[in-house]
Design a protein around this nucleic acid. Structure first.
Ligand SMILES: [Mn+2]
Ligand SMILES: [Mn+2]
Ligand SMILES: [Zn+2]
Ligand SMILES: [Zn+2]
Lengths: 148, 148
DNA sequence: TTGTAAATGCAATACTGTTGCATTTGTATT
DNA sequence: AATACAAATGCAACAGTATTGCATTTACAA
């Protein structure tokens, strides 16, 4: 849950890129270090404003290839804004396992991937067949709860 | 679940507008009849292409005021596209009760509001306090399941 | 019938995301 | 170290989504 849990050095990011047969470029390393430094998902607008010297198109292409490779996953928050988060584990190229709960804090706007929460099986009306579930919760995160 | 369940006449749409102190205009009645005629949510692109003689800005303003009044609710599908659906009941101005399951059919792209499905309480990590949940399922709807 | 607030249409603008193409760069090979 | 090439980047153009301001029209109450 804390930042250090995912903290990685540049060398490890380089290894990650190499593992996925992606060239080690400055832009990609910066995107990785920005996303790995946080315990929440990062919104597209945030990525764009912080990494504002990287061309927008390049940023989109980096995000797309990282998603394809199973390095990050995309999650829309409750306002429909795209957010990107580091995949926990078990995600491979074109084959994600990110069916965890997403918590949207209404105060700090943080989007948390709560991998540890198992949500129960949900039954559906006759005839409906689900191959995946996405669960969102909105409210106050731990930090914001304390401050109220 | 079938269309007739929500079928309404123009008079009833006029009553609905009057109840919410909205003027009875052609554009508003057409938006209502389009949305009430279906048992799925309607995407913004669909609304725009079908009601293409209504100015886009007017359409957005109609959707926004209907949402404020609790007549419809907005739901993003799994691609982040805005969809609008008739509120079931209990929705009032600035106070919605639309915490039902949303089913996204990967075949027909339909977004179904499954009011009848009660999803179980989901517990959260210490400190997190949810005031609402949104659950999405993706897969095949009843109609598309049959056809496969 | 008239007056007026509400609703609409239109122009302009901002944001999100994609495509095509020329240029640059990372890296494997020599 | 130099070369060679695919991959990555930057830039321009474009499409789609959504909002704001303002002039005009319309619904409806008086
Ligand atoms: Mn996640
Ligand atoms: Mn719904
Ligand atoms: Zn928070
Ligand atoms: Zn279907």
């Amino acid at each position: 849950m804390n930042n250090m849990a995912q903290a990685k050095s540049t060398y490890q990011f380089e290894d990650l890129l190499e593992k996925h047969q992606l060239k080690k470029t400055g832009a990609r390393l910066r995107v990785l270090s920005m996303m790995y430094a946080k315990n929440t998902a990062t919104s597209q607008p945030d990525l764009e404003s912080v990494l504002n010297d990287i061309d927008r198109v390049t940023l989109y292409r980096i995000l797309n290839v990282f998603e394809e490779k199973g390095i990050i996953h995309k999650v829309f928050d409750l306002n429909g804004t795209a957010n990107y988060a580091v995949c926990s584990s078990g995600c491979q190229e074109h084959h994600h396992h990110d069916e965890h709960l997403h918590f949207n804090c209404t105060n700090c706007k943080g989007v948390f991937c709560l991998n540890e929460i198992k949500f129960p099986t949900i039954n559906l009306p006759a005839g409906f067949h689900a191959d995946g579930f996405t669960v969102y919760a909105s409210g106050l995160c731990a930090k914001c709860s304390k401050m109220q």
